[in-house]
Amino acid sequence: MSDQLTRPSSKRKILPVGHYRGLGLWNAAFLIFLYMPIAVLIFYSFNDNRMVMIWSGFSIDWYIKAFNNVAIQDAVLNSLIVAFFATVISTAIATIGALVLARGGNFRGKTMSLGLITLPLMVPEIVTAVAMLIFFAAIGINWGLGNVIIAHVTFCIPFAFMPIRARLEGMDTSMEQASRDLYASEWETFRYITVPLLMPGIIAGAMLAFVISMDDFIITLMVSGAGSTTLPVYIYSMIRRGLTPEINAVSTLLLLFSITIVTAYWIVSNKTRTETVH
């Protein structure tokens, strides 16, 4: 028997049903296409030359320059402030909304509510951007960073909402029933059963909201006034002024920041998936 286990097969190999030749290669080409620009961007951030595309040697000078650039520091600070408030507020709103929509049974207006909550996902960003610009101008709100925060809270809600709702729908209601059966009040059940079980979903939602807020460009560009420039908007103005590796350096840092958070999100959600599946 061990002979058969090790004997190399001389037979023509028939692919299993549903498999196709070249798919793996296609997938590899796809991933290269997806990551090549990111790799190029990072590579040229270490270029010594002023001109991005003319490689003249390795250097980390552009990182040092970016770190010392006061305008970049301001933009990063603005981005972090906006992202912080947008995340906290949108996650709170999304959590309550998700609890109602996933646990409130069927009620009149459920579909409409779902539609409203996912509205920012369906409307093209540029339309959201100009609608908000018109709105702020029409009612005369000019709160600087406040305008940006309001806009970010609005479009971050669906991103925070989705993982929380997914988590709620994957959760077994029998645990909450068991808690009520074991003499817990409604509040105790919520506090000791629902919230801990829901936590991975809330964390995931908050992470996505944070990344989306940090990365947003077009809506911020339209609603932010002078002095409320965020990092992506500042990077855009740098690109307009001329391509130096400093752009690459800042971009690389923002990129790595997003990747780190998304990776953390992935690990958290993967862990909870295996927990629920066993």
């Binding site: 002979d3 058969q4 037979k11 028939i14 299993p16 049903v17």
Partner: peptide, 9 residues
Amino acid sequence: AGFEQVTGG
């Protein structure tokens, strides 16, 4: 049926 291939025989 042919959904799997024999290892031996």
